[in-house]
């Protein structure tokens, strides 16, 4: 009995050890998911989609539109849709030419209150 429990625990630890670096690796490689909650709840930015699927490199956004520190942008008073339409932040690419325009497909980026609770694991 004791032996089988030990085996189960050992197996669980091993799977954690295997999965652990993998998850952390994803996050450190390209930043993971960022959930903005200001000025409205909430917008999900997926590094995975932008880096892995769309092939963007770090400096394409982090040179001018966004600082490296996550969620820094939403502290700025001009982090608004109006500002995006002027080509700032996401609007640098989401202008209808490089990527779909910021004033279209609202719920593609806005995952809402429901989205933020899912993202935060509630």
């Amino acid at each position: 009995m004791n032996k089988s429990i030990t085996v189960i625990i050992a197996a669980a630890l091993m799977s954690l050890a295997l999965a652990g670096p993998g998850l952390a690796g994803d996050n450190t490689n390209h930043g993971g998911d960022i959930v903005y909650t200001k000025p409205v709840k909430s917008v999900l930015f997926s590094h995975k989609v932008h880096v892995e699927q769309k092939g963007l490199t770090c400096d394409m956004c982090h040179a001018r539109s966004f600082e490296m520190e996550a969620l820094k942008a939403q502290e700025n008073p001009d982090f608004t849709m109006e500002s995006l339409y002027q080509g700032n932040y996401c609007g640098a690419c989401h202008n209808g030419t490089m990527a779909f325009a910021s004033n279209t497909r609202c719920a593609s980026c806005h995952t809402g209150v429901k989205g933020s609770t899912v993202a935060q694991g509630h």
Partner: peptide, 9 residues
């Protein structure tokens, strides 16, 4: 409907 972003204000 297309303008709703579920901010729930």
């Amino acid at each position: 409907q297309d303008r709703c972003i579920d901010c729930e204000r």
